[in-house]
């Protein structure tokens, strides 16, 4: 079992959240899994952790289409927070709009975090979705 300290799931669809949580159970023993309904709430969650000096999540599952603040807006804000710790961000979408893929690629090149792109439906979460071998070390 892969050990992960903290995971954020950002999706307004409770079924997807349920699914991700269920799949995570089979692969990791992480106890700190938090779900957020939209990007704004998730951003507040991260900001809270920063102010309280709690570790930011290692892994984020991020939906794109959400009310109030969507996945891209969330990423934009996250990048501007300038967090030094590298997070693994799994962008999950049911969109087949090629624009979304291009946007993902732009962010991937722009920020220090590891960005994955995953299309729904998800059946399984791989270990690579949760960790990244740091080749430099």
């Amino acid at each position: 079992m892969k050990k992960v300290n903290s995971i954020f799931i950002i999706d307004d669809d409770p079924i997807t959240v349920f699914g991700i949580k269920k799949m995570l159970k089979t692969i990791t023993t992480c106890r700190d899994i938090t779900a957020f309904e939209n990007g704004k709430l998730a951003l507040e969650g991260i900001q809270n952790r920063l102010t309280e000096d709690v570790e930011v999540p290692e892994v984020i599952f991020l939906d794109i289409n959400m009310p109030i603040m969507d996945g891209w807006e969330f990423l934009e804000e996250l990048v501007s927070l300038n967090i030094k710790k590298r997070m693994i961000i799994n962008v999950i979408t049911s969109s087949i709009d090629p624009k979304d893929y291009r946007k993902w690629n732009e962010f991937r090149l722009r920020c220090i975090h590891y960005l994955n792109f995953k299309n729904k439906p998800l059946y399984k979460i791989e270990e690579t979705d949760l960790s990244r071998i740091n080749l430099a070390s």
Binding site: N65, S94, L122
Partner: peptide
């Protein structure tokens, strides 16, 4: 079309995921 595909896809994705479970 994107809205339709997205919305329908997100539901069908849920179906297949849940059915798989």
């Amino acid at each position: 079309a994107h809205i339709v595909s997205h919305n329908l896809r997100s539901h069908t994705a849920n179906f297949s995921m849940l059915l798989d479970f």
